[in-house]
Amino acid sequence: MSADNSHASATSAVAADVSGGGPVSDAALVAASETKVTRRARRLRQGMQNPWASLAAVIIAVLWTIPTVGLLVTSFRPEADIDRSGWWTIVTNPNFTLDNYEQALFGGGNNLATYFVNSIVITLPSVVIPISIALLAAYAFAWIPFKGRDVLFVAIFALQIVPIQVTLIPLLTQYVNWGIGRSFWPVWLSHTMFALPLAIFLLHNFMKEIPASLVEAARVDGAGHVKIFFRVLLPLLVPAIASFAIFQFLWVWNDLLVSLTFAGGRAAVAPLTVRLAEMVGTRGGDWFLLSAGAFIAMIVPMIVFLSLQRYFVRGLLAGSVKG
């Protein structure tokens, strides 16, 4: 449920920024923000040079990292050692093995690759579908005037507060009635539904920020909605799309509840998280495998995050300030 929280906290940050925006002209906004940025950068640099601040930053970073380091160290320790002593005892008793990784990867009836593939098969459509729909919806909310637009927009955003847990049984009943209960479909559809409100909200704010003059100029030149969407807006939207894609990717990749409820635990459809939850064995005796399993499952999100992180902050902030 941590991904759920990150959704929520990002939303509130965005909302706070929105209320901060005032009716300033674009040029003035750009100029003002530039001086503000340089001033802030200077202050930040001075702050960095303060040795006490650096020390505090280092201490916080170390404290923050300790649990993960402990987990990493544990993942390389032999089972008997994990049972008997804490990971910090490696200082006096260094004893490492790759057995945990081997068992986590190849120990089960199906090796972990099956679940890796399932995770990817679940995650890609669950990221692509909501973004596709949200882009179109956001465009409509931003640039097509129609009756009841604001009410509808608020209604969609309000759906964000519905906890997904209350939808589990009604949705599953529906999927079973439709005869798609035991495939990937319920997972894709559910992730799409749960992602749409935030996706539409973020992308709408970003689109709104693009100067109206740009869209009008294109319209004067004879471009229709389709052309404006693909030629004018889409290239500008890349950071916003990338940042939301990271969000959604991490949430879907780390999700256990939705896939366990809708797809079940069969090897044909179960993602990595489900396998990870089963890894400890029927009676929890193999819990020492969890640290190794966690680090294996972490690889893909790490790669995705690190390769797309430059979009992350940019895209989020870009969508937050209303023009």
Binding site: P125, V128, I129, S132, I133, L136, Y139, A140, I144, G179, I180, G181, R182, S183, F184, W185, W188, G224, H225, V226, F229
Partner: peptide
């Protein structure tokens, strides 16, 4: 404007259909 709205929703629909085509049969 009206025509483009139709086109946009057609794209959305075809996106969903395309995804549907590669889903396994229940």
């Amino acid at each position: 404007t009206r025509k483009s709205t139709v086109a946009v929703s057609a794209i959305a629909a075809s996106l969903l259909l395309a995804l549907g085509a590669c889903a396994p049969d229940p």
